[in-house]
Design a protein around this nucleic acid. Structure first.
Length: 582
DNA sequence: AGGCCAATACTG
DNA sequence: CAGTAT
DNA sequence: GCCT
């Protein structure tokens, strides 16, 4: 297929990342991209095709969400503009037509590809129910978005929930007051600190809702603009502070220490020791603690079944210290390059991107999150196979040191290592287990990897990336594997740490939603999804929905727009950090 | 007394 | 389903 | 653990 002599223009915004990508596709085929839409109108060349982003075209091939379209395209009057296009006879199609052309290797319009400009009142006569309901839905959406916007500007729903978080996105005014409020009241600072620790404590113990209550109480304290003098005062004047927390506040004010917490610090640490191991969550940690285990070796002896049913715990134990240790951005990037290079030899069209804390600009990353996708490919099974092939290659190259999930193919390679770990742990019951793979095809790969000594040397010689804006995180004192458990350790003694590497894949059509999901942070995902739910949407890694109807999944910015949010760069999706730098 | 809850994928 | 993970 |  050659597109020589053909002209294309993208609307409403030619500079989105997806459109940039589409441009390069068309240019490769010989097409010319018209940057200014005014130009193509003036010259009134009929060979121009205008490509309009799918999300602005409804099922009847009419333009919807005109207000947003107008703003994004930088137009003064959409209707006037559309009139001109119609007059000149320029063809308009959905951007996704490119996908069709590429797949069929043919540039041609089919019957319903072209966007219609005549308002079709006729639709109703055909099938009253269908036509009616679908147009109803569209108008419902746009009016709702509209009314949300009005609400926001009146600051109505801002006061209700997650006030500090909303303020974060509101610019500098809110931030400044947040800071001055905070530092003025000494009592409150003390109480907030205590509530924060209690929240963390209950999170470790897996007490989801109790933790939530403390979190909400903490937020109330943070938004409180007077000095709290008694527990009773806090209870009556603030939301989310009930009798129990009020009582604790009173004790803090009286004695300066928080009740119950100092006593249970021991418990907290014991649970943490187990929970820090990959594969151990709050439930197993609690159980082992109740059984008075204080080390993995005791657990291995007295509760070997747990290790046989979830063998990944063995590797969590083996790499305990390494996996708690964070790496530099440079190292993260080196891992990406390594994977990318291997991927080119397997499927050059497949692409891979860093997500997670790296993407959010952290100077230290706990793991490497890689997202795989392939232009126009919506077949995750195909992606899964590519990833599996890649894993096999990287394992044979000595880069991958362990898998935390297996397919039959990977099991063949890796079984020896699992057996070796069981022997070292002196656990015998593993022989009864017949298979160690979970399913034929897996779509997420979790593993442990190490750079080669040579790559590590190169890394050391690299310049620091201090020049860029980096986000530092306060260091937490790390728990170390106890000496008694060291016999299983495969932790680095030479500075070459084992790193956690995750492969995810994503359908091409869901790239935007997938990026939001895997970029995180966890807290940000929670926050934005609650917000979405409050506005009647549902946000997942597969897209933004309303009444289970997909509204958008490809275009990241548009998801923000539909939620009436300003686009947040990944660096601004870090809740704790945003608060601190406010 | 019962709801609150991010939403989802994978394993046994 | 519970548990752990992202 | 707080809210309804």
């Amino acid at each position: 297929m050659s597109l020589k002599g053909k002209f294309f223009a993208f609307l409403p915004n030619p500079n989105t990342s997806s459109n940039k990508f589409f441009k390069s596709i068309l240019e490769k085929k010989g097409a010319t991209i018209v940057s200014s839409i005014q130009n193509c109108l003036q010259s009134s060349r009929k060979e121009v095709v205008i490509l309009i982003e799918d999300s602005f075209v409804d099922s009847d091939m009419h333009l919807t969400q005109k207000d947003i379209f107008q703003r994004e395209a930088g137009l003064n009057d959409v209707d006037e503009f559309l009139g001109k296009i119609e007059q000149s006879g320029i063809q308009c199609a959905k951007t996704s037509c490119i996908t069709k052309w590429v797949q069929n290797d043919k540039f041609a319009f089919q019957k319903d590809d072209l966007i219609k400009f005549q308002p079709s009142i006729i639709v109703i006569s055909d099938n009253a129910d269908d036509g009616q309901s679908s147009t109803d839905k569209e108008s419902e959406i746009s009016t709702d978005v509209e009314s949300e916007r009005n609400d926001d500007s009146n600051n109505k729903d801002m006061i209700q929930a997650s006030k500090p978080l909303k303020r974060l996105l509101q610019g500098d005014k809110g931030r400044a007051s947040l800071v001055t409020d905070k530092t003025k009241y000494k009592n409150n600072e003390l109480i907030i600190g205590a509530l924060k620790r209690l929240t963390k404590k209950y999170e470790i113990e897996g007490e989801k809702f109790r933790a939530r209550s403390y979190r909400l109480a903490k937020q109330s304290m943070e938004n409180c603009d007077f000095n709290v003098r008694s527990g009773e005062e806090a209870h009556t004047k603030l939301r989310n502070i009930g009798p129990s927390i009020a009582k604790k506040i009173q004790v803090i004010l009286d004695t300066g220490v928080l009740p119950g917490l100092n006593d249970s610090v021991g418990l907290e640490d014991k649970l943490k020791y187990f929970k820090n191991c990959y594969g151990i969550g709050s439930e197993i940690a609690k159980r082992w603690n109740l059984l008075n285990f204080e080390s993995f070796c005791v657990a291995a002896k007295k509760d070997p079944e747990e290790f046989v049913s979830d063998w990944t715990i063995l590797f969590g134990w083996s790499y305990y210290d390494d996996w708690l240790c964070k790496m530099s951005r440079n190292e993260c990037f080196t891992h990406l390059k390594k994977v990318q290079k291997a991927l080119r030899g397997i499927d050059p069209e497949c692409q891979v991107e860093l997500q997670g804390s790296y993407n959010r600009g952290y100077s230290k990353c706990g793991d490497i999150d890689l997202l795989f996708f392939k232009p126009f490919c919506n077949d995750t099974t195909e992606l899964a196979k590519i990833m599996e092939t890649l894993c096999i290659k990287l394992y044979k190259d000595g880069y991958i040191h362990c898998f935390l999930q297996l397919t039959p193919n990977l099991e063949k390679l890796f079984l020896k290592r699992i057996v070796e770990r069981f022997r070292t742990a002196k656990i015998v019951g593993y022989g009864e287990r017949k298979r160690w793979y979970s399913s034929e095809i897996i779509k997420k790969f979790f593993m442990g990897v190490k750079l080669s000594p040579r790559e590590l040397e190169e890394l050391k010689e690299m310049k620091n990336d201090e020049g860029t804006l980096l986000i530092e995180e306060e260091e937490e004192e790390e728990t170390k594997l106890k000496p008694i458990d060291q016999y299983m350790s495969l932790n680095a003694k030479d500075g070459n740490y084992c790193r956690r590497l995750d492969f995810f894949c994503c359908k091409w059509d869901e790239l935007g939603a997938g990026r939001i999901h895997y970029t995180g942070s966890k807290e940000y995902n929670r926050w934005i999804r609650i917000l979405a739910a409050q506005k009647g949407f549902k946000l997942t890694q597969h897209g933004l929905f309303r009444n289970n109807i997909l509204l958008e999944s490809f275009n990241e910015r548009r998801i923000f727009e539909l939620l009436n949010l300003k686009y947040a760069e990944p660096e601004h999706r870090n809740i704790e950090w945003e608060k601190k730098t406010a």
